[in-house]
Write a protein that binds this DNA or RNA. Sequence first.
DNA 1: AATCAAATTAGAATAATTCCAATTACAACT
DNA 2: AGTTGTAATTGGAATTATTCTAATTTGATT
Lengths: 128, 128
Amino acid sequence: MDRTLLKKGLRPTKQRSCVYETLLERKDHPTADEILLRVRKKLPTISLATVYNCLETLADCALIRQVNFDRSPSRFCANLSPHAHFICSRTGEIHDLNLSNKDILKLKSILPNGFQVDDFDLTFNGTT
Amino acid sequence: MDRTLLKKGLRPTKQRSCVYETLLERKDHPTADEILLRVRKKLPTISLATVYNCLETLADCALIRQVNFDRSPSRFCANLSPHAHFICSRTGEIHDLNLSNKDILKLKSILPNGFQVDDFDLTFNGTT
DNA sequence: AATCAAATTAGAATAATTCCAATTACAACT
DNA sequence: AGTTGTAATTGGAATTATTCTAATTTGATT
């Protein structure tokens, strides 16, 4: 991670490292508020603004991903491999559905000619 | 539309009708603010709160769809047939990509066994 | 015409996020 | 080691989309 930041002329501060490591610890999808709570166990004085700053920086460096479900608070995760999300309407659980190359080709096959895709978001709602 | 509302015990008021017809007029994806501006040409005294109320009611009745891109203001459209969205990062244009049954089966084939889908959101980002 | 629930309205409240100005931290020079 | 300059952090204010609230209006039904 330090490498990636330094390459962009950004400092791997303890706040940034801690936010990043906190996201690695668990494979869930915490909000900025939840991340603040977790990070404060290690850095009790970190501010919410800094958490937002760190998350933005890490996302800009493609070290983490920001995920939005409708207009609810943004969530963040360190799973960088291409995946879709499944939200269970009973439990509220968010599942990562990792996508094979085949899956990705299927997705792209939906596009008419001449559409160049940089990125996509795919979210399912339902029950498990 | 009146039918659908009445069936649910809701009144087809002139505000609701006007919001609905405004969405039918153009096949774009206006925000509540933009809808307010358009609707005010016909009902100059309608309030933003009412526009929000009408949109919520119409969406609850499945007469329109609410669409969210990341955390930007919600957008609304009257295209009810299953479709994905493509956002052009150059122009900001939002394209509807209507999905065939085949496309939908492809999408669902991504899911592991035991996942029951009620709905999905698929958005592509790229250039045309 | 009187009644009553539903809908509309203006403005206040909320909540997530961003902005701002002041402080702090740190790397690079002397 | 001390100084300097830039970047990062911080707390709180500001912003923005949306929801809430309480008062008024509407319109169907008695």
